[in-house]
């Protein structure tokens, strides 16, 4: 569950997020839409603890405060950024294995293979990720985001660069994750049909 109250973030003089209030319940998919530069990605980066907010009354993931319990929060979050970063010298399997091992997931080897099969990358799992197409990178990013069974999933334009098969796979996995009780905050330009609510971010607040 994501709970934000009076959440502020600025870059220098530019106030990006102003007194933002958001609540995403467990098992809910919420789509966040808004024009470019309205702070959608900044919000996801703040929730994932990559950026620190200026101030807030409440900022919690499953009742864990973002600042006080940042490691616990990170272990509960799966984050797919707009351009997922990987080590090009490592294969897709090795990148995923590294992530799983760092998240202390047991039986990481077989879990990594299973996840790659789920996102349709098993045939290229031993290829270097530096040779992947943008769609493959997006699939690998999604596999990494959901592989450690997070309770909160943050997706920044997850369907960018994906073919129809990739979108279908991702949507199917998203629905399953939702049924398992995961809170999903999805940044997109349009709201998908399976989204429970759509919020519009405008001038740093929900309109």
């Amino acid at each position: 569950m994501i709970r934000l109250n009076s959440f502020f973030k600025s870059f220098g003089y530019k106030k990006v997020l102003r007194s933002l209030d958001i609540l995403v319940e467990s098992g809910e998919i919420v789509t966040l839409i808004g024009n470019n530069g309205t702070g959608k990605t900044t919000l996801l980066r703040c929730i994932s603890t990559l950026d620190s907010p200026d101030d807030y009354d409440v900022a919690e993931i499953d009742d864990y405060d973002l600042r006080s319990y940042s490691e616990e929060v990170r272990s509960r979050i799966g984050y797919l950024p707009h351009n997922p970063p990987f080590y090009p010298e490592l294969t897709g399997f090795e990148n995923l294995l590294f992530w799983l091992q760092m998240n202390s997931v047991s039986d990481a080897d077989s879990k990594a293979r299973r996840m790659l099969a789920k996102v349709g990358l098993i045939s290229v799992s031993d290829d270097f990720s530096g040779n992947y197409s943008s769609g493959m990178v997006q699939r690998l990013g999604f596999a990494i985001a959901i592989s450690h069974n997070p309770t909160t999933l943050l997706l920044d334009e997850p369907f960018t660069g994906l073919d129809s098969e990739g979108i279908e796979i991702m949507e199917k996995l998203l629905k399953k994750i939702k049924d398992d009780g995961c809170s999903v905050l999805l940044v997109s330009h349009d709201s998908p049909s399976y989204s429970d609510r759509t919020l519009k971010l405008d001038r740093g607040g929900i309109s």
């Binding site: 994932s48 490691e71 616990e72 950024p81 990987f86 080590y87 992530w99 760092m102 202390s104």
Partner: peptide, 14 residues
Amino acid sequence: ERGTSDLLKLMPIS
């Protein structure tokens, strides 16, 4: 440069 520092910072370690 690669953005992999973000990947590392997302890991649940100090």
